[in-house]
Amino acid sequence: MSLLRFLLCLFIFIGALAATGELALSILLMLRFPPLLLAVVLACWILSRLLRLLPPGQGNPN
Results as ranks from 00 to 15, higher is better:
58 Q>G: 01
59 G>D: 14
25 L>S: 11
54 L>F: 03
13 F>P: 01
55 P>T: 09
36 L>A: 15
13 F>C: 13
38 L>R: 08
27 I>N: 04
38 L>P: 00
51 L>M: 15
47 L>Y: 13
32 R>N: 12
33 F>G: 00
49 R>V: 13
39 A>E: 09
4 L>Q: 07
10 L>D: 07
9 C>K: 11
27 I>Y: 02
34 P>Y: 06
58 Q>W: 15
2 S>L: 11
18 A>D: 06
58 Q>M: 15
14 I>K: 03
24 A>I: 13
37 L>H: 11
41 V>A: 15
38 L>Y: 04
24 A>C: 09
15 G>I: 01
21 G>F: 04
29 L>V: 07
34 P>I: 11
41 V>T: 10
52 R>E: 13
47 L>K: 12
3 L>G: 03
27 I>E: 10
51 L>I: 10
62 N>R: 10
31 L>E: 07
13 F>Y: 10
56 P>T: 02
62 N>A: 13
12 I>L: 15
56 P>F: 01
25 L>M: 08
62 N>K: 09
11 F>M: 07
7 L>F: 04
19 A>H: 03
29 L>I: 07
21 G>E: 01
55 P>C: 06
14 I>D: 01
2 S>Y: 04
23 L>E: 09
31 L>K: 09
20 T>Y: 10
5 R>E: 14
32 R>I: 05
5 R>N: 08
25 L>E: 06
54 L>I: 01
8 L>T: 08
45 W>K: 08
38 L>I: 11
62 N>P: 01
21 G>I: 02
43 A>Y: 06
50 L>W: 10
56 P>H: 08
50 L>D: 02
9 C>L: 14
1 M>V: 12
49 R>A: 15
36 L>I: 09
19 A>G: 11
40 V>L: 06
2 S>Q: 10
38 L>K: 05
43 A>C: 12
3 L>Q: 11
57 G>N: 04
27 I>G: 02
61 P>K: 00
21 G>K: 04
62 N>C: 08
49 R>G: 11
30 M>I: 02
5 R>I: 04
60 N>Q: 12
52 R>H: 14
31 L>T: 06
8 L>P: 00
6 F>Y: 12
49 R>T: 07
53 L>C: 07
18 A>V: 12
40 V>Q: 05
25 L>G: 01
12 I>P: 00
22 E>W: 02
24 A>R: 10
40 V>E: 07
31 L>W: 06
29 L>G: 02
7 L>E: 08
45 W>Y: 13
42 L>E: 06
36 L>G: 03
36 L>C: 06
29 L>K: 14
24 A>V: 14
13 F>G: 14
56 P>N: 07
22 E>A: 14
7 L>T: 01
45 W>D: 10
11 F>W: 10
59 G>W: 07
10 L>I: 01
38 L>N: 04
25 L>C: 03
50 L>T: 06
29 L>W: 09
46 I>F: 04
34 P>M: 09
48 S>K: 10
17 L>K: 01
46 I>H: 00
50 L>A: 12
